[in-house]
Write a protein that binds this DNA or RNA. Structure first.
Lengths: 224, 224, 224, 224
DNA sequence: TATGAATGAGGTTTCATTCAT
DNA sequence: CATGAATGAAACCTCATTCAT
C-alpha cells in the first residue's frame, strides 16, 4: 500500500503517495475511509479507537477526516445505519417469503450469521457501545430499529407456537434475546478464515437451538 | 450516613466524616472501594469509568484511591480475579460432584446464570474490555483461566457424547462458546428485579438448548 | 438566481451555475465576494467568521477565495481601506466646506452616522479586532488613518473654542473620543429598519451632545 | 515571579516554584487564576485568549485549569457575574439614595466610570463577545441583567423629564444607550495611569452630556 | 491515609491555507 | 478560475497518575 511507503515527516513521499491514490472519486474516498474506520472499530471498539488512528490507517492526518465527516460519531452513524437498513430489509424479505415459521426462523438465523463478517464493525459497536450511543440524539433511531427487528423475530416465534409447530412453553421474547445474543456475540471470535465457514457455524447453531424450539425438528424424522 | 452530614466545600466537615467512617479496617475500606468501582464498571464499562467517578461515588478524592490500589487496572484485576477464582472453583466442584453429563451441564449453566448478578462488573469487563486487557502482562492470566474453564465445559460435553447421551453431531468447542456467550451476554439486560428471576431465566435457557444437546432431554420423560 | 438551480451534491449542476454567473468581470466577482464577507464580518466579527462560511454564502468553495485574495486578512483589508479612504475624504470635504465649527461638527457627526449602515463590517472590525489587526504590518496604516481622522475632528473642536463658540473647558481630544465612540458603537444595535432612521438617530445624538459643546446651541435661539 | 524562574522541561525547577507559591488556599488560588484570565481577556478578548495562554500566565499547564473550572466559559462566567452582581447592587443603591434625577444620573455615570478599571475584563467581554455568549444557555442571565440595568437608568431619565428638570425631547431609551456605550467603550483606551484619572474622565463626560440632558445645568447658575 | 492541585500526554475538533486536477 | 481533498497547527478539554502537605 501507499501508506507503507510513507516516511513520517517526509512531505515529498507523502505527496507522491497522494498522487498515486487520488484516482478515486469523492464518494469512493469517503467509502474507503468508512471501511478503514470500521476495521478499527471492529478490532478495538468505537471509543477506544482514536481519530488519529483512523487517520494513520487511512494515510491522512486526523483533521482531514473532518472534510468528509462531521465527527467521529458520524462515521459510526454511517456504519450503523448501513448495517441496520440492510438487515431490516433482509429480515422483512425473509418473513415475507417464508410463511412456515420453522423455515423463516432458520433463514433469519442464517441471515444473522451471514451479516457477521461484512458488518463486523457495526455489530461490535452495537454490542459494546450501544448504551453510550443510544443516549445521543443522533442515535435515537437505534432503539427504534431494534424494536422493529425484535418484533419481526418474535412474531415468527409466536406464529410457530400458534400453529403448533414450536414448543408452547417458550418465552418468545426471551428466546429472541438468547438467539440474537448468541449469534451476535460470535462476532468476537468468528473468523471466516478459521476452522469453520459461516454456513457451518450457522448449521451448528441451528442444530443446537432448533431442537429446543421445534416440536419435531430432527433432520431425520423420528419414527415413533 | 456520614455522607449526609457533609457540606459541600467544607473540608473540615469532610475530615470529620472520614474519621467517623474510618472505624473500618484497611481491608474493609479496600473492599468497599472495589464494590463501588464494580458497580460503575458494570454500568458503564471499565474504560468509560473514570477514577474521579469512582472517588466521588465512594466519597473520597480520586487521588486517595491510589493509597489502596496501584492503578485503575489493579481494581479491575481484583474484580476479575475474585470472579474467576470463584467460578473456576465452583465449576470444578460441580463436575466433581455430578458424574452424569446432563446433570453436570445443567448445573454448570445454572451456576453461570447465578454468577451474573453478583459478578456483573467482572462479566461486563470480560465482555467489553477483554481484548484490551489481555494484552497487558498483568492480565495474562485471563487467557489461562478462560482455557481452564473451557476445558471443564468441553469435557462434560465430550463425555456426554461418548456416553451416548448427547447428540454426537455437536461441535463441542463451538457449543461451549454458544452456551457461554448467550449466558454471559444476558448480563446486559438481565435485571433480577424484573420480570424473571435468575432461576426462571436459567430454566428457559435450559429448555431452549438442552433439547438440542441431549438425545432425550425433556424434563418429563417421554412415554411413547 | 443561479443559486436556486443548484442541487446539493451535484457538482455538475454546480459547474453550470458557475458558468452562468461568470458573465461578470473579475473585479465584479471580487467585489461581490467582498460584500458577502462584509456582511458576515458585520454579523459575527472577523475572527469568528470562517472562510468556509464566506465561501458558502458566496456559493463557492473556500479554496476558491484564494484566487481572488491572498488571505482572509486581505478581505478585511479591502473592507477597511475602502471605508477609511471614503470617510477621510468625506471628513476633509466637510471641514473644507464648512468654516463654522458648529456646523462642521454637526456635519461630521451626521456623516459618521450615515456611514454606519453602508460600512457596518468595517466599523465592527475596527471596534472588535482593531488591537489584533493593528499589530500586523499589513494593517500598520490603521493607526495612521485614525490619527488623521482624530486631527480633523480635534481641529474643529479647537477652532470652536478659539472662536468662543464652544465651551472652553472641554478636553478636545477626550471629547472627540467620546463622540466617536458613542457613534461607532451604535453599529451594534442600530438597525435602519427599526424604530429610527439614521437621521433621527443623528438628531437625537446631536441634541444630547451639542448642548454640552456649544455655548449657545438650542435650536430655538435664546433671546436674553 | 515564580514563573520567570521556570525553565521549560525542568520539572525540578517547576516543583520548587510550586512549593514557593503554594502557601495560598484553594479559593485564593482560584481567585488568582480568575485574575490572570481576566487580564488576558481584557487585553485580547475572550475567544482570542487561549487556555494555554492563561495557563502560561498563571504558571501551570492548561489542563490544570480544569481542576478549578469546568471550562473556559466558566471563568468568563465568574468574571461577568461578579461584575454584574456588583454593578446592579451599586446602581440600585444609588437610585435609592438619590431621589433627585440629576444627582442620581451623575452618580450612575460616576459609578459606571469607576467600574471601568476594576472590571476591565468583564466590560471588554460584554462588548466584544456578548452576542456570541448570550446564545449559550449558561449566559442566558446576561440579557436579564442588562434589561434590569436599562430599566434603572431609563427610569431616572423618565423621572427627570416628568419632574421638568430634564429636556422633554429626549428619547430616554436611546439616551441611555448613548450614555452607556460611550462610557463602556472607554474601557478600550482608558488607562488610569495616563493623563487623566477616572474622576477627571467622568467629569469631562458629565460636562459633555449633562448640558444636553438637564434644562439648567451650568455650574454657574443662569440668572434669567 | 486523605487531600487536592498539578502534570502531561493524548483526546476530538476547527480552520486558514495549499495545490493537483 | 474553481474544485475539494489535504495539511498541520492549534484550539478546548479529559484523565490516570503523582506528590507535597
Amino acid at each position: 500500500m501507499a501508506a507503507t511507503k510513507r516516511q513520517a515527516g517526509s512531505s515529498a513521499t507523502r505527496t507522491e503517495a497522494r498522487a498515486a491514490e487520488s484516482k478515486q472519486s469523492s464518494s469512493q474516498r469517503r467509502q474507503a475511509l468508512v471501511e478503514v474506520a470500521a476495521e478499527l472499530f471492529a478490532e478495538s471498539g468505537f471509543r477506544a479507537t482514536t481519530v488519529r488512528q483512523i487517520g494513520e490507517a487511512a494515510g491522512v492526518f486526523s483533521g482531514s477526516l473532518y472534510h468528509h465527516f462531521d465527527s467521529k460519531e458520524a462515521i459510526a452513524d454511517e456504519i450503523l445505519s448501513t448495517y441496520l437498513d440492510g438487515i431490516v430489509r433482509e429480515y422483512k424479505s425473509i418473513v415475507k417469503e417464508h410463511t412456515d415459521p420453522g423455515t423463516a426462523l432458520r433463514e433469519l438465523v442464517r441471515a444473522a450469521f451471514a451479516s457477521l463478517e461484512p458488518h463486523r464493525a457495526a455489530i461490535t459497536i452495537l454490542q459494546n457501545e450501544r448504551s453510550y450511543l443510544a443516549e445521543l440524539p443522533r442515535f435515537a433511531y437505534l432503539t427504534k430499529v431494534e424494536n422493529e427487528v425484535r418484533r419481526i423475530w418474535v412474531k415468527v416465534l409466536d406464529t410457530g407456537i400458534a400453529q403448533g409447530s414450536f414448543h408452547k412453553d417458550l418465552d418468545t421474547k426471551l428466546t429472541y434475546q438468547f438467539l440474537r445474543d448468541a449469534i451476535w456475540v460470535a462476532v468476537r471470535w468468528f473468523a471466516p478464515s478459521g476452522r469453520l465457514s459461516v454456513d457451518q457455524l450457522a448449521d451448528q447453531y441451528l442444530k443446537l437451538v432448533m431442537r429446543g424450539i421445534e416440536l419435531d425438528s430432527d433432520e431425520a424424522p423420528r419414527l415413533w
